[in-house]
Amino acid sequence: MRRRSILQSLAAGAAAVCVPTLRAQDDKSVMTILVGAASSMDFTARLVAQQLQEVLGRPVVVVSKLGAGGRLALNELKRAAPDGRTLMFSTSSLFAIYPHIYTKLDYDPVADFTPIAGVSWFDLGIATGPMTGATDLKQLMAWQAKQGTGAVYGAAPGAGSSSHFVGIALAQASNLPLKPVHYKDSGVGLIDLVAARLPMLVTGTSPLVEMHKAGRIRIVAVSGEKRSPLVPEVPTLREAGMNVTIQNSAALYAPAKMPREMVDRIYNAVMPMLARTDVQEKLAGQGMVPFPMNGTQLAGWLAEERRRYEILAKESGYVPEAL
C-alpha cells in the first residue's frame, strides 16, 4: 500500500507539472503585442504578430500604447501575468540607454522582463545640408572644427536618445566640442537642415533617405556595424574614419518569470520568418536588417550595450533627468 501511494503521488505530481505546458500549447486566447513607439516598430511588430498567429494558431493583435518614450507600454508589460498573453515589441533603448539618462526608473531593465527574441536591428544616419556644403564625413567634421565652441548637431528624437549618443560618441572620437540641439522628431530637424539653419542631423536613417536621394541633403555616414540597406553607397562611421558604432535592436519581450517552454515556443515560432526573402525585403524597406537572437543571447547583448552607454554617459558628463 505504501508503494502504491508513493507511485500515485508521483503520477499526480508529474501530471500537475505537465498541465502548464499543455495549456500553453492549447491556449487559443488573444495574444497582445504592445508597442511603445510608432512607425517602423509598429510595422515590424505586425510582421511578428502575423507570424505568431500563423504558427501558434491563435489571434494576435498589436496595440500601440505611446507615451513617456515607451515606458507606458513597458510598465503595462511589467504588470502583466507571465502567461504568454501579453508581450512587447521594443527597441533596446528602454533597456540599455534609459538606465543611464534617468535618475530613477520605475522598472528594473533586467529583473522585470524576459527577453524572448531579437528580430531586427537598425542604424542612424548622419546627414548634412546646404549650410556646410560637405560631401563626406571628413569634410563635415573639418567644417565643424572651424566653428570652435559653436559646433552643433541636431539629435532626433531628443535628449538621451541613441541619436544624442551618436553625437556624444562623435564628439569624443573627433575631439570636437559638439553640442546637441534636440528635436522631438526627425521632421522638424530635417526642415532646419534643408533650410541651412542646422549643419548636421543625427536621426533614423529611414526619414533621411528621400531628401538624400533628391540631393537636398547628404547622408555622409551611418552608425551601424554594416551599411544600411536603404543607402548601401553610404559608408559606416568606421569606414569613414570614426571609431564609432551604435545601433538599436528591435526585439520581443515578456514579463518576468515566463516559463521557459513558453519562451522557447514563441522564439521558435518567430525565427523562421527572418529567413524569408519577402520579410527581409520588408525589413529593408524600413531600414532594418534581421537580428536573430534567442533570449539568452539578447540578454547578453543588452548587458554589453548598458555598459557601453554607461561609459559614454559618464565620460560625456551627461546629467540624468528625473522622471
Rank of each mutant, 00 (worst) to 15 (best):
M1G: 03
R4G: 03
S5C: 12
I6W: 04
L7T: 12
Q8Y: 08
Q8G: 12
L10S: 10
A11W: 11
G13T: 11
V17I: 14
T21Q: 05
R23Y: 00
Q25M: 08
K28G: 09
V30W: 01
M31I: 11
G36T: 15
S39C: 10
R46K: 13
V48E: 00
Q53A: 14
V55A: 08
V61M: 12
V63P: 01
K65N: 15
K65P: 09
G67C: 09
G70V: 06
G70R: 12
R71T: 15
R71F: 15
L72F: 07
L74M: 11
L74N: 05
A80Y: 00
P82D: 01
M88K: 06
F89P: 09
S93D: 11
L94K: 05
F95D: 01
A96L: 13
I97C: 03
T103A: 10
L105P: 02
D108R: 03
D108T: 03
D108N: 12
F113Y: 03
F113P: 10
F113T: 04
I116Q: 07
I116T: 14
A117H: 03
V119S: 06
W121K: 09
D123W: 00
A127G: 04
G129E: 02
M131K: 14
T132N: 00
K138T: 10
K138L: 03
Q139L: 03
M141E: 03
A142R: 05
Q144A: 06
T149C: 01
G154H: 01
G160P: 10
G160I: 09
S161Y: 02
S163F: 03
G167A: 00
I168F: 02
N175I: 07
L176G: 01
L178V: 01
P180N: 09
K184L: 15
K184W: 04
S186I: 06
V188Q: 08
R197F: 02
L198E: 01
V202D: 04
T203W: 04
L208F: 11
M211D: 06
K213P: 09
K213Q: 15
I219A: 13
V220E: 11
E225C: 05
R227Y: 10
V231Y: 06
P235D: 03
L237V: 02
L237N: 03
E239D: 10
M242I: 08
V244I: 02
A250T: 06
M258N: 02
M258P: 01
R265T: 07
I266P: 05
A269S: 12
V270F: 10
M271W: 13
P272Y: 04
L274N: 14
A275H: 09
R276I: 15
K282S: 11
L283I: 14
P290F: 14
M293F: 10
N294E: 05
G295K: 04
A299V: 05
A303I: 02
R308Y: 14
R308H: 14
E310I: 07
I311P: 02
I311E: 11
L312S: 06
G317S: 15
P320K: 13
P320R: 06
L323Q: 10
